[in-house]
């Protein structure tokens, strides 16, 4: 038996919004410690990993590990039926072929229950190696979203170069070139830790997809190391995260 209750549907809506542009379907792995999910996009260039610890939920019960194969489009449709400030309870019986979502209005005067058919997804699990990133940058999530949007105007590829002087995003194409550089701020909105400078090239459209998670977090963490996938991490309060990994582009 699995049961998890969140005080607000809004965060769940935001989490699904952050996933659904990369994935159509995905399996939530629920255990007594919380919920995890990881999947690559169809082209195997990016990976998204979600972790929500049980402390994130108002109520959490999971007697036995259970995997819930979900169609994210269908889940979005159900979430559209709810108000952001409704409480939501997700329930599934052991070996169930459906999941139940119940919404309760803030004043408790309205309840609505929906059933979603579960999918039997054959999903492979990947081992994500622990990586020591040579450069770790924290910046406001809205700033990162803005930079990705502005870079997309100029080119498909974005070069991210990080050194002690700052982090620089560059794009150049037929129209011209764009360079945006952020330095560390004394107030701590932007922090930059660098062991060794790194410069890597990435497909901008994936970066833009990651910024779908912007409403979830104030700050985004970016991890860079030579010849390994970029890490873009959005914390979910103190109880979890959405991490995106993106493989670099290399010169022929």
């Amino acid at each position: 038996m699995f049961e998890a209750r969140l005080a607000s549907t809004l965060t769940l809506k935001r989490i699904v919004d952050a996933l659904r542009e990369i994935l159509n379907q995905s399996t939530l792995d629920c255990s007594d410690t919380g919920i995890q999910m990881q999947a690559m996009d169809n082209s195997h260039v990016s990976l998204v990993s979600l972790c929500l610890r049980k402390e994130y939920f108002e109520k959490y019960k999971c007697n036995r590990n259970i995997s819930l194969g979900l169609d994210l489009k269908s889940l979005t449709k159900v979430l559209k039926c709810a108000n952001g400030d409704d409480a939501v309870t997700i329930k599934a019986a052991d070996k169930a072929d459906k999941v139940e979502l119940s919404f309760e209005s803030a004043g408790k005067e309205r309840t609505a229950d929906y059933e979603l058919r579960l999918l039997n997804l054959d999903q492979e699990h990947l081992a994500i190696p622990e990586t020591e990133y040579n450069c770790v940058v924290h910046m406001p999530a809205t700033e990162f979203a803005r930079i990705c949007r502005d870079m997309a105007t100029f080119s498909e590829s974005v070069v991210i170069a990080c050194s002690k002087e700052g982090i620089k995003f560059s794009a150049s194409g037929e129209m011209g070139a764009a360079n945006i550089k952020l330095s560390e701020t004394t107030k701590g909105e932007v922090s930059i830790q660098v062991d060794e400078p790194v410069a890597l090239s990435f497909a901008g459209r994936y970066l833009s997809t990651f910024t779908r998670a912007t409403p979830l977090a104030e700050k985004v963490k970016i991890g860079l190391a030579p010849d390994v996938p970029l890490l873009v991490e959005y914390p979910i309060e103190d109880y979890g995260y959405i991490r995106y990994y993106l493989a670099p582009k290399v010169d022929d």
């Binding site: 195997h44 260039v45 990976l47 492979e124 990947l126 996938p229 493989a247 010169d251 022929d252």
Partner: peptide, 14 residues
């Protein structure tokens, strides 16, 4: 020209 690397070479199937 640049080539897009795939993630499969970094993250191994468990």
């Amino acid at each position: 020209a640049q080539t897009q690397v795939r993630l499969d070479s970094f993250f191994k199937t468990m």
